[in-house]
């Protein structure tokens, strides 16, 4: 059930705007502030990190989106850019860093490796996508994706943040008291990580035969 929010009359709003009076909602200004100050975690895993660095430098200038402040501590970060191959040895650390980030937190899985294992998908030591353990907001394909692709992912994330309601049943995870903030950190098993995936965030795709 969704509760219809009282909206301001569009005509009155336009009329006020002509007079230099701008109106907004608390939700709108909250999301506006959040979407323009997404601080990423300074965290690169492989070659995609080079593109991420390039995106933050002068030529592509991630600062235009208020996201140039790469934080070296998960305590201060809002966004985890999983930039590169997540090996099974690294996966517990990635999940733990994600757990240590304060809410609200977002994840961009950057590049073929981070979203699916990429060229190393058949390898015994590479995780086949970080979305098996943590909820990913934006996936970027590419090997590696160009900085423009990362900028597009940023803008996609900003649109997502902009549309997150502050109240109601559809409000995002960080505003719900019973939604988890930490996800189970996988352990090193005999042959594989245990568990091999987190069923609450990822299910193995069902094969449909025609």
């Amino acid at each position: 059930m969704t509760i219809e929010k009282p909206k301001m009359d569009e005509g009155l709003r336009n009329e006020l705007q002509k007079q230099g009076v701008f109106t907004t909602t608390l939700e709108g200004i909250y999301n506006w502030g959040r979407q323009n100050s997404v601080w990423p975690l300074q965290f690169g895993l492989a070659c995609c990190a080079i593109e991420m660095i390039a995106a933050s430098m002068a030529r592509y200038d991630l600062a235009r989106f208020g996201a140039e402040v790469f934080r070296p501590s998960p305590r201060q970060a809002d966004l985890m850019i999983v930039a590169g191959t997540v090996t099974k040895k690294m996966a517990p650390q990635v999940v733990r860093l994600y757990n240590q980030m304060p809410e609200p937190k977002y994840v961009i899985a950057m590049g073929a490796c981070a979203i699916s294992g990429g060229p190393f998908k058949q390898g015994y030591n590479v995780l086949k996508g970080i979305d098996r353990y943590i909820p990913v907001d934006v996936h970027i394909p590419g090997c590696p994706p160009r900085p423009e692709a990362l900028l597009h992912a940023f803008m996609t994330l900003q649109k997502k943040i902009e549309n997150q309601p502050l109240t109601g049943a559809n409000r995002p995870r960080h505003l719900q008291a019973d939604a988890p903030s930490e996800f189970p950190v996988p352990k090193f098993g005999v042959h594989d990580l245990e568990p091999p995936s987190n069923p609450t965030v990822w299910q193995s795709p069902k094969m449909v035969r025609a």
């Binding site: 757990n99 240590q100 960080h174 008291a177």
Partner: peptide, 16 residues
């Protein structure tokens, strides 16, 4: 915005 502390979040930060 409810607070969500946890064992990982409250742990000492050490590069994951």
């Amino acid at each position: 915005s409810p607070q969500k502390p946890g064992p990982d979040k409250n742990a000492t930060y050490e590069c994951g």
